[in-house]
């Protein structure tokens, strides 16, 4: 099958932009990145699903002339799910803003603590230490 170069360029741009936004600190930009990646994925499905054709109507046209209905059905499902995820992420961003006054993703505090003090004396519960004299 011949390849549509325009769609390939479009996919590269949409995905690159989405990935770049995903690596930002602002939750709002991250949400936009997710939205763009969702668009990209739906487009990917159509690009991989064959060349354009007639809208898929049963009995209406010859089968070979129809566009493939399966990627369309999958993308339709994906559109709605992207919307649901976007809404949820926006609610998270809203909450972060309401609690912290900003919507930035900061570094995990616990991870940083462990990184700075890998040998920190935080004994596990399993160690018996209050009965030093006892041998078993």
């Amino acid at each position: 099958m011949t390849i549509n170069l325009t769609l390939i360029v479009l996919l590269a741009v949409v995905y690159s932009t989405g990935f770049y936004l995903l690596m930002q600190r602002s939750l709002m930009r991250i949400v936009l990145g997710v939205v763009l990646l969702g668009h990209g994925a739906n487009l990917f499905l159509q690009a991989a699903g064959g060349p354009p054709g007639e809208p898929p109507k049963a009995g209406g046209s010859v089968l070979g002339a129809l566009s493939d209905p399966l990627p369309q059905a999958m993308a339709l499902t994906a559109i709605v799910i992207t919307f649901a995820v976007t809404t949820f992420l926006l609610a998270l961003a809203y909450r972060s803003h309401a609690l912290l006054g900003h919507d930035e993703v900061s570094d995990d505090v616990e991870d940083q603590r462990i990184r700075q003090h890998p040998e920190a004396e935080q004994e596990s519960q399993a160690v018996v230490s209050d009965e030093p004299g006892e041998h078993v």
Binding site: I8, V9, A12, Y15, S16, T17, G18, Y20, L22, M23
Partner: peptide, 9 residues
Amino acid sequence: AIGAGCFVA
């Protein structure tokens, strides 16, 4: 980002 995007394409 560009590398990953181009890979997807």
